[in-house]
Design a binder for these strands. Structure first.
Ligand code: FES
Ligand code: FES
Lengths: 147, 147
DNA sequence: ATAATAAAAGATAAAACACTCTTTTAATAT
DNA sequence: ATATTAAAAGAGTGTTTTATCTTTTATTAT
């Protein structure tokens, strides 16, 4: 549903929000290593996010990425919008050119329920919300280490 | 979420169930034209579905595709399984290698709700269910003609 | 100023997905 | 039997997504 670029983005932003601040930034290498993501690809993704002002970056020694406190209130849907676009949330589940109430596909009512539910979820959930869960130890952003 | 191959498959099967029988078959051309799908690509897709016995085909004059009455009870999830696989329904929404109750991502509980809901929907809905909606005029499988 | 560091930028490569074209095979009707 | 029809099979193309590599630019510490 979400592209790899998009889930890599979300996990990285959460990681950055959790570990970095204006004082202590985190680099591509650290993020890639901790989240087990392909490093050069991650670079491209973070570059895009920076361009869209979703995260901030500083070059040079002790440089890296961080995010402003307030920015943590950013809703997930904004990240999805920037990376994948919002087409999915307006498209027919059976691939009709137009999702429509008056000319619906036979899956419309049921599909819409979940599609809109996901949209609402992403729209109401902020990065901060997810960071809090991590912080409380109720959720994880890193893969389970298998040893 | 579902690939194009998959939604093309579903719409085509519905079309075949609605229009064809052992006596009167429908050809690739007719399906492609009515559903506005790329004809050669559709050929490949129907070929796969035939190989998996989801639909039946006959070559030669008055040949084409049809589906047995009983087969209309086929659940949508079976088509998804054959065409796309079921990975989506077992995967983490934030791209962790494993979706897990004991090592969940911060979106797990909410995401699971919709992911499992969709799985249940596809598991409980049959081709016949959708054909009935079309039959009653409550739903459509063809695009709205824009004139 | 200079060297070291780390991201930005750009060019390229590999893989997956969507789509097309051509030839072959099987079925039917004459 | 033969011609016709329509799907099967296989090879090939284009596009998008995912991933990699190299060079440049900006920042910081010395
Ligand atoms: S018309 Fe298919 S989901 Fe709305
Ligand atoms: S762990 Fe992410 S959805 Fe279950």
């Amino acid at each position: 549903m979400l592209s790899k670029s998009c889930v890599y983005s979300l996990r990285s932003i959460i990681f950055i929000a959790y570990h970095a601040s204006k004082e202590v930034k985190v680099g591509i290498k650290e993020i890639a290593k901790e989240l087990e993501l392909p490093e050069p690809y991650l670079g491209k993704i973070l570059q895009q996010l920076t361009k869209h002002k979703i995260i901030l970056s500083v070059k040079g020694p002790h440089g890296g990425f961080y995010i402003e406190e307030e920015a943590e209130e950013l809703k997930l849907i904004r990240v999805v919008e920037v990376v994948d676009g919002l087409d999915f949330f307006y498209s027919c589940g059976l691939g009709l050119k137009q999702c429509s109430e008056t000319h619906p596909c036979p899956l419309h009512d049921d599909f819409k329920l979940y599609r809109d539910g996901l949209f609402t979820l992403f729209s109401n959930t902020s990065i901060a919300d997810l960071v809090h869960k991590i912080d409380k130890g109720n959720a994880f952003i890193r893969n389970l280490t298998k040893d």
